[in-house]
Each structure stands twice: as C-alpha cells, then as structure tokens.
Computed example of a mutant assay.
Amino acid sequence: MKNIRIAVLSAILLAGISCKKEDSKVTANPEAKTENPVSNQKIVSISGGVTEIVAALGHEKEIVGIDVTSTYPESLKATAKDLGHVRSMTIEPLLALNPTLILASDKDINQDLLAKIKSSGVKSELFQQEFTIDGTKKLINQVAKALGNTNQQELYDKIDADLKQLQPIAKKPKVLFIYARGNMLMVAGKNTPMANIIEIAGGQNSANDFEDFKPLTPEAVVQSNPDVLLFFTSGLQGSGGVDGALKMPGVSQTNAGKNKKVIALDGGLMSSFGPRVGEAAVSLNKLLIESTK
C-alpha cells in the first residue's frame, strides 16, 4: 500500500502535489519594492511550484534546468533543460549546466541526489512545500529570499485579489477527486492537496474516512456518495471523457453519477499551489457553482 501511495503522489507531481498543515501565516510587507532585480544567476529549479515562483518573480530567463513537474510557464520548454523526475534524477546532467543556484522542494526528492547537491559546492536551497494558501505565501517568501528578490508583495497581492473573486456556495457540494492515469485510478482522502483546493473553492471533500490516496473501489465511491466528480483534464480525457467517468466502478450509484456531474481542470493549475493558487481556486469555484444548478 505504501508503494502505491508513493507512486500516485509521484505521478500527481507531474502536474505538481502533497499536503501539510500550515502553522504560521506570512505577513506581507507593504514597503516591498516592485522593480525586477538584474541577475546573472544560472538557476536549476527541480520543483514545479518553485519554478512557477521563480518565473513569477522575474527570473525566468535565468532558469537553465528544470524537473518534469515544472510545466509552467510553458516557454521554459524551449529554454531550460528537462532533467527528468527528482526521484530518478542524477547529479551529473544537473552539474553539466554549471548552475550557480539549485532550488528544490522536499517533496519526493531522492536522498542520493540531495546529498550530492549538498556536497557539490553549488549554492542550494531545499524548501518545505506546504499546500495551503499560507504555505504558498511562505514558500514565495523563502524563494524570493534565496534569489535576493523583493517582489513578494506583488505575488501575495495576486493571490489575495484572486481569492476575493470566490463566490459563496449555499450548500457545499461533496466532491470526489479521482486521479486517472492509464490503468491507475486513485481517490483523494482527507489531508491531501486535492482536499485542500476543493475546500478553498467552496466544496467539501467527500472521502474523509481515510487519509492520503487509495485505489478506487466501488465500495469507496458509493460510501463517499459525491455530488460531483473532479478530474485533471488529461485524466478525464484519457478515461473516455464524461461518459467514461460515469462508467467507473460505483459511480452510477452516486449523486454525481445519477446527475452526470463531472468536472475537470488543468492539472498543473490545480495542483501546483504556486502564485496561481487563487486562480485555481476561482476556476474550481465556478465549476462547482455550475454543477449545483
């Protein structure tokens, strides 16, 4: 079961995720400067969420290497070398880029790579990524400090402005997130990133009798009885669209199945918990409101 959980979390990180409760809040600095600093850094960023922050802070052109979860901004595909997944990444291709700064998240990085990065002599920062709104702001602050940047305020403001667009939902719909990739079908329980974004968007996670992710079974789906099924866009497409989702085990016996309530969002947007986290919450909020009509 442990191996299954690691596999699904790693796979979901292709769009970027995991979960940890935030203990402290970040206070924005109203006097923060807004100019983009000029730098000659050569950055390797091996975390999708961290990469988004680096780019949003004005340092995209300094990124020379990324991991497979770094899918946004898309322009990086043409300018930065894809080093693969941090679980299987080796140090040699990374150091061949002659980086001056290596940035990484503690999620899923293999310990051999981490040890070699620390002993390489290259300046590096390892961040604890916490998939909440406050956790995102904390990560932005930490990445900005590592870059010698003072543009955090702009990103805090964007998140706050986006979140103000959330509309209340009178009766919170029960939402079941299904991760579908190939023959793998997993559902998200409590204390997962997907449960977090569902709740931020105004819904409630329907699978709260277990933690993390577990294989989809008819019993689990029926027991959770969701009002709405939520997928990554790619996962829904690969499952045969809405019709395919409605044929999944147990779905026809749920409110979602009976009412054909199936929604999907871009995986990178929904799971990165970077500067676009408010944007993701608002997009999901709109879909949930539509699903209640």
Rank of each mutant, 00 (worst) to 15 (best):
T71A: 12
G84W: 10
S70K: 12
T51Y: 07
T51P: 04
D67Q: 10
G49E: 02
D67N: 13
V50G: 02
I53A: 01
K81G: 00
I63K: 09
V50Y: 01
V68H: 13
I66A: 09
E74H: 11
D82S: 12
T79G: 00
H59G: 07
A80P: 12
L57Y: 00
E60R: 14
S70P: 07
V50W: 01
A56F: 00
A78V: 05
S70R: 12
D82T: 09
G49K: 01
K81A: 12
G58C: 10
G84N: 08
I66E: 14
E62Y: 01
E52T: 07
D67V: 04
T69V: 05
I63D: 11
E52F: 06
I66S: 11
Y72T: 04
G58S: 08
D67F: 10
I63R: 09
K77P: 00
G84T: 12
I53Y: 02
G65Q: 06
G58T: 10
E62P: 00
E52N: 11
T79W: 02
E74Q: 14
L76G: 06
T79K: 14
H59N: 12
G49T: 10
V68C: 13
E62F: 03
T69A: 03
G65W: 12
T71N: 15
G58Y: 04
E62A: 14
P73H: 04
T69G: 03
A78K: 14
G58N: 06
D67H: 11
V64C: 10
L76M: 07
K61P: 02
I63W: 10
A55G: 03
S75G: 02
I63P: 07
G49V: 07
L76I: 08
A78M: 06
V54W: 02
L83P: 13
G58F: 09
I63T: 07
T51H: 09
A78I: 02
T69L: 04
A55Y: 00
T69N: 04
I66V: 15
H59Q: 05
V50K: 01
K77D: 11
E52S: 09
G58D: 06
A56N: 13
G58K: 03
D67M: 07
K61A: 15
V64S: 05
H59W: 08
L83W: 15
K81H: 09
E60N: 02
V54G: 08
A55K: 06
A55M: 05
I53P: 00
A78T: 10
L76D: 06
K61L: 02
L57V: 11
A80T: 09
L83T: 14
T51V: 04
L76E: 06
V54S: 06
A80H: 13
T51R: 10
S75M: 01
A78G: 01
V68G: 00
V50P: 01
G49W: 02
T79H: 09
E60H: 00
D67C: 07
L76N: 06
L57N: 03
K77F: 13
G58P: 12
E62G: 04
V64I: 14
K61M: 03
V68Q: 13
S75H: 07
P73M: 06
T51S: 14
E62H: 08
A56H: 03
L83M: 12
E52L: 08
T71Q: 15
I66D: 13
T79N: 05
V54M: 02
E62W: 00
A80Q: 12
I63L: 07
L76H: 05
S70A: 10
A80I: 10
V54R: 03
A56M: 03
K77M: 11
V68A: 15
I63V: 15
